[in-house]
Design a binder for these strands. Structure first.
Lengths: 161, 161
DNA sequence: CTGGTAGTTGAAGTCAACTTGAAGTCAAGG
DNA sequence: CCTTGACTTCAAGTTGACTTCAACTACCAG
């Protein structure tokens, strides 16, 4: 691998669309790896661009950087990932998007039925109470998947560090 | 209005599903108002519950607390809001949800065409480059509305305070 | 009157995903 | 050799939406 195949952080940033600071941050997290020149400057392999494309794609789908790291860690070590590798990683995303779409659609449909009444009842309104948290026994759709919920789901995970 | 009509923060929290700290926080932001006992404890009117239902609903739709505050400030001062008032406020949400759904659907459809190829090209792939940021001249759908974008939109709003 | 539960405040902490700043070093053209 | 722009590190700051903490005080049943 010739030195001319290696890219500086500036080139990587420009060509990936990420800020240099983000690229350094990702390297710090272990999402990317880079060689160094004698002077200590980063030199990235060309395949880093695809890796960054994967990261942006995953972020667009709604994955956290932790999830991205987990996905990336399942790539084969030692060899450059193939298209099939990338394809495999992104295969699960469809379901994720489907879930998000379904949740939003249900929310919208509930909204349609609520707009006329303006009730916003904590007990009955699908919009203000999508997961039906107030009375978990009765009928009523569970609208939002965890990723879209804005209610007390946060209360269940209190400073786990 | 009798004193028995007033609710403590504990009751409000329990009945709305919000944490007490959140209720205090909202009051601090001006999203809620509360009277005080002689000893300084908050007493909420019953209508606060509906206000909180509105807040949760708005958060579910994706509004920030700033947007919620703006919406609430358009309620009539002096009188208790009617159903029509609440209905008016939530009417604009449908478009917002439609936009979100459309964006996710486009993303999913792009994903479907990408899963087979695993390309994730920064230039061409709809998933990693949904807003077509890399070459703004050419054809290519703008997939994500601002609220769903995970790319460099953040770079455009640098510490405005 | 006393005890216990519920409430008060303000400041500080949390989380994710970065960005910004300071102070300094490297690389390359002239 | 000098300058200039690109690069380095590490710590600290940012944003939004809260939560947590400490040190008190209020309310109310018995």
């Amino acid at each position: 691998m010739r030195a001319t195949d290696l890219l500086t952080i500036g080139e990587i940033a420009r060509r990936s669309g990420f800020a240099e600071s983000a690229v350094r941050y990702y390297e710090g997290l272990g999402l990317l790896s880079a060689g160094r020149t004698a002077g200590g400057q980063r030199r990235f392999e060309r395949s880093t661009l695809r890796r960054l494309a994967f990261i942006r794609a995953a972020r667009n789908v709604g994955l956290s950087l932790n999830e991205v790291a987990e996905a990336l860690s399942s790539l084969p070590a030692g060899r450059t990932p193939t298209r099939a590798d990338w394809s495999r990683l992104s295969r699960g995303w469809r379901q994720r998007l489907d879930d998000q779409i379904e949740a939003l659609t249900a929310l919208r449909d509930g909204l349609d039925s609520c707009i006329g009444c303006g009730c916003l009842s904590l007990q009955r309104c699908a919009i203000s109470n999508p997961a039906d948290t107030a009375r978990s026994g009765g009928p009523g759709a569970v609208y939002l998947p965890p990723g879209l919920r804005r209610d007390d789901s946060r209360l269940a995970s209190p400073a786990s560090r």
